[in-house]
Nucleic acid binder design. Sequence first.
DNA 1: CACGAGGACTCGTGTACACAAGTGGAATCG
DNA 2: CGATTCCACTTGTGTACACGAGTCCTCGTG
Lengths: 255, 255
Amino acid sequence: MALRRIDPASDRAVYRQIADHLRADIESHERPPGSQLPSESSLVADYGVSRVTARRALSVLVTDGLAISEHGKGWFVRRRPPVKRLSSDRFARRHEGKAAFTVDMEANERKFSVEVIYVGQGDAPPEITSRLGLPPGTAVLVRRRRYLVEGQPTEFATSYIPLDIAAGTPIEQENPGPGGIYGRMEDHGLVFERYDEEISARMPTEDEARHLSLPAGSPVLHLVRTAVASGRVVEVCDTIMDSAAFVLFYSLPAR
Amino acid sequence: MALRRIDPASDRAVYRQIADHLRADIESHERPPGSQLPSESSLVADYGVSRVTARRALSVLVTDGLAISEHGKGWFVRRRPPVKRLSSDRFARRHEGKAAFTVDMEANERKFSVEVIYVGQGDAPPEITSRLGLPPGTAVLVRRRRYLVEGQPTEFATSYIPLDIAAGTPIEQENPGPGGIYGRMEDHGLVFERYDEEISARMPTEDEARHLSLPAGSPVLHLVRTAVASGRVVEVCDTIMDSAAFVLFYSLPAR
DNA sequence: CACGAGGACTCGTGTACACAAGTGGAATCG
DNA sequence: CGATTCCACTTGTGTACACGAGTCCTCGTG
């Protein structure tokens, strides 16, 4: 956090130089996560620039996911949510009848909770019905929930299950019992063959940013899991994750 | 692209309303990828706002990864690179002696090429040597390359291999021959056991954005693969990918 | 025809100012 | 003492203006 000056001879724009100074402080942990950054007016005073330029410098850090602003309070170094590992390999997925998420959390000694947002019949988007092998517009069972790790929302998941599998079973309940919905499906004789997972990353929509309490400039991981049992797709699960909170982990046996 | 007006009674800021209009046009494909967006001055004229406000609206789209600006030319709807699937499952990875990347590309009928940037001895970062089970600062073989799909750089990968495995073998050459470096390792009697892959997403550094020709506001996928053969880690591969270009695909057998 | 100079357009960066609105502590009032 | 008001501070949104620099087309000259 040494006193730094703008180099007027530099080709680099002034607002970028200011952002570089702050970024260096953040990356060296001289400005730790959660700490307050200089206010706009103090940057104006320290660097002799206009407020517009000071704001531009700070907004660079927001785009980089390093800082956030809070109205009326100030600018802060972004606080990273607790990092978690999602063990998606086939051995961890169904350990002792617990969901993979539970196993992951216990292995990492994290406090976590699940909020069920909605369970009931509903329409699935076309890309979901297509994965389920159903005609567009078919009603399915929708299970929407939010996962919190150490009080912080980190994951937002929606499962879509064909009604002929879910109807009249505990899958329609908020809490489907031990082993989760996969356990209930196995109770009904379904034999799981594989889980296909597709992963992409993108910037969140405003809705997603609100649901996950994400600051601007932070990407989300998007995971779509397709569960295949007894020769058919029995569930599609669409998950949006705070990318700062997750490292997905896959272990792939050779041959 | 219907003529739209600002709602002065709305709580939503003017620049956000303008951004919403443009976003709707982009998402409905009325403004297709690569097409030019209204210039700042035409937004000023059409909406009766200042240039600062017009720019603010456009910069929202940049943060969302929907638009880019080109100095002296204008603002454009971001052109998505061709989407590719990385089949990381154990069956596709080593098909007929071809690298997974080649198999993926041929399956998707994409033109692709590889630029070798550096092959030679070098230092590995501490997090890499730790994965390799080597003391910090140990020299290793570094293989750095850039993958282009349809002329567009999409992936930037660096492999780190212990010298006692690589030295004096074709692994030290730019082109290690059929089956790539894994093939040469098998030639020397190494038996592959598994590949561990860790995936995260974040905003690119400026270097990465430059190497991948990424516009601002577009996140990258970060994949670290650890290859285990004959009881030891024989390679760590660190890959940065344009997240708009990739969907990672994993097929996990049940039990 | 080839080349170069202009000029009109674009975005990039910077100034100065104004007012709205959220936050938090100090002062004041009952 | 407790509640409310007020004020100083913060960021959010908007205006108007200036100049630099990249792009691209046109026009004029040799």
